[in-house]
């Protein structure tokens, strides 16, 4: 111990810039939750604020336009609706929820590398950044969910009590997104090149998650089918559809998979992210 270290100990000063123990880190993160939510809300809001005269109306207009485009391309032109009764509802739920996850993953992976100025000037648990990024996507999704419900009702689906499970399904998807964002944010901050691979993975997921066609219709049985149907994005799309569409049955095993993916990844992601806490500045 140096003389200065002894002096610090004598006067009870605490060490700056070292990684706190996991429990303490968890406590700090919880303590700063208001900042996380406020940051997320501000980002979701600012996204539409420079959108001209229509301002926040774009929060609703943007998803509506996306719904129109996808319905036109896949429903009218390509007709990938084999084996689905209510294709409008199926497609719109798939596109909106899938977009929520891809935006969470791609923006979440850049949560550290794009926020270097914030990291360099303020002290807070860095896990706030991937968490806030994914939460901002959740706030962006909320107006889209309203559009979604209007579309599903107008496509002829009856209102059922099971609709009340939708917030839970979206909540699990949000938790899953935060977990994966923490894993990717650390990887990308340490190996920037890794960030280049993310778009390719997302594109592969788009074609293997049953976004605009029914996985059940195209892949039957075997190991490949099992993997495709149990990968997290496919699970969350199925959960969302089972809440709103009569033709997709609610299954307990899917819910258990959804819960497992969400909290498993959140725990793994949090610990994995925490272990490199002190390295994020100027990574």
């Amino acid at each position: 111990m140096t003389d200065l270290a002894a002096l610090a100990a004598e006067h009870g000063l605490s060490r700056v810039g070292v990684r706190p123990p996991l429990r303490e880190y968890l406590r700090q993160t919880w303590q700063r939750r208001h900042f996380m939510i406020s940051l997320a809300a501000a980002r979701a809001y600012a996204r539409n604020q420079s959108g001209g005269y229509l301002g926040q109306l774009w929060a609703v207009i943007t998803p509506s336009l996306w719904a129109c485009v996808y319905l036109l391309v896949f429903g009218v032109v390509l007709k990938t609706n084999r084996g689905i009764d209510n294709y409008t509802g199926f497609l719109v739920i798939g596109v909106f929820l899938f977009h929520f996850s891809t935006a969470s993953i791609s923006n979440g992976s850049k949560a550290i590398s794009l926020n270097q100025d914030l990291i360099g000037s303020l002290q807070f648990p860095r896990a706030m950044l991937p968490l806030a990024t994914v939460t901002a996507e959740l706030f962006t999704l909320m107006p889209a969910l309203l559009v979604l419900i209007v579309v599903v009702i107008s496509s002829g689906e009856p209102l059922r009590p099971v609709w009340l499970l939708l917030p839970l399904a979206v909540g699990l998807q949000w938790v899953f997104g935060m977990g994966i964002a923490m894993v990717l944010a650390r990887l990308v901050s340490q190996f920037r090149d890794f960030g280049r691979l993310v778009p390719f993975v997302l594109r592969a997921l788009m074609y293997t998650s049953g976004v605009f066609f029914s996985l059940n219709h195209y892949v039957k049985d075997g190991a490949a089918a099992d993997i495709l149907k149990h990968q997290p994005i496919a699970i969350y799309l199925e959960l969302g559809r089972s809440c709103l569409l009569t033709e997709v049955p609610v299954s307990l095993s899917s819910w258990l998979w959804g819960i497992g993916w969400a909290f498993g990844l959140l725990a793994v992601g949090f610990v994995f992210f925490w272990r490199a806490e002190e390295t994020y500045a100027r990574g």
């Binding site: 605490s14 000037s121 002290q123 500045a281």
Partner: peptide, 28 residues
């Protein structure tokens, strides 16, 4: 920035009594 805990110290140590804050809320 090192004193503010915003940059990691490569070698050596910094101790502070209470919070050290950089006048740099700017980025937020």
């Amino acid at each position: 920035r090192g004193i503010a805990g915003a940059l990691p110290v490569t070698q050596g140590a910094i101790w502070a009594d209470g919070t050290a804050s950089l006048l740099g809320v700017n980025a937020a």
